[in-house]
């Protein structure tokens, strides 16, 4: 589905991502874990040619046979948001402050599905309802929505055209743990409904264990270990993976009698 082949990302002086290969299968939930600065986000952004100025990616990224890195901007634009979507940690800023939620949806439909622009209001409410929001929120401005609502709205927008791949970059980091779980179980339900694969960038092991099918662990721009979620979590082979798992806060290891809450 989405295949990263020997991706190298470098500045003029430093190599930030070093020959990383990663394959996201159709319909699977693939986690990419690693500490801050390991190059996870850069790798995911390179797929949409969204790297900051001054950085360049080498190698090839194939989305069902189409090389994304070699695509012209205009061709890439017709693909972004339609066949490959992103959602980010900072959902607050993901909507333009001067435009209503509905206008954002309408704009996306006008970009990718102009013939059906008339149905935009209906599609917007349907999309908002599919993530558990009221359709009437479409007429609101971003600052009138809560953080959780905005994150759901951004998911609805990202999944509007049932993309093949959704890249979710630390989407739960800014949410409290209850909202985080809600958002992820929502993503999981939508994934099962639409069959899209998810590349999930995170450093929260609880989410990884619960939702993901496979894991790749990144360190200093390289993937040090990858495999099925339970294999990696229960029998980590690489020293770094072991340390990462050990460093994760797990309630059962706390000295007090607190138990991890079951949602």
């Amino acid at each position: 589905m989405l295949h990263f082949d020997e991706i190298t990302i470098r500045t003029s002086s430093r190599t930030l991502v070093d020959k990383v290969s990663l394959n996201v299968q159709p319909g699977e939930w693939h986690a990419l874990v690693g500490q801050s600065g390991s190059g996870k986000s850069l790798l995911s952004r390179s797929a949409g040619q969204l790297l900051p100025p001054g950085l360049s990616a080498e190698g090839s990224i194939l989305l069902e046979g189409t090389d994304l890195l070699g695509l012209k901007r205009s061709n890439l634009r017709s693909l972004l948001g339609r066949r490959m979507s992103y959602i980010f940690q900072d959902y607050q800023a993901a909507f333009a402050p001067f435009r209503t939620i509905g206008q954002h949806f309408r704009e996306a439909i006008a970009t990718h599905d102009k013939q059906r622009l008339r149905e935009a209001p209906d599609r917007t409410s349907a999309a908002l309802e599919s993530v558990g929001l009221e359709g009437s929120l479409a007429s609101r401005y971003p600052f009138q929505l809560s953080g959780g609502q905005l994150q759901r709205a951004s998911i609805a927008l990202a999944l509007l055209f049932s993309p093949d791949v959704l890249i979710a970059d630390e989407v739960t980091t800014a949410l409290d743990s209850v909202s985080g779980h809600r958002v992820l179980s929502l993503l999981n339900r939508l994934r099962l409904e639409t069959g899209c694969s998810i590349l999930f960038i995170t450093h929260d092991w609880r989410h990884v264990r619960r939702y993901t099918d496979r894991i790749a662990v990144m360190k200093d721009g390289r993937i040090v270990e990858s495999g099925g979620t339970h294999r990696v979590l229960d029998h980590p082979r690489h020293e770094y993976t072991r340390r990462l798992i050990a460093a994760a806060p797990v309630l059962s290891r706390l000295p007090s009698g607190l138990q991890e809450a079951q949602p």
């Binding site: 969204l50 634009r77 972004l80 948001g81 979507s85 993901a94 435009r99 704009e107 970009t111």
Partner: peptide, 26 residues
């Protein structure tokens, strides 16, 4: 540099649209 411009880009908006609809009101 704001994220909503990045969001506009990842939704596949053309530069002309980004300028006229997202930046001009600002």
């Amino acid at each position: 540099r704001q994220d909503y411009m990045l969001a506009a880009r990842i939704n596949g908006l053309s530069p002309a649209n980004m300028l006229s609809r997202h930046l001009l009101p600002h």
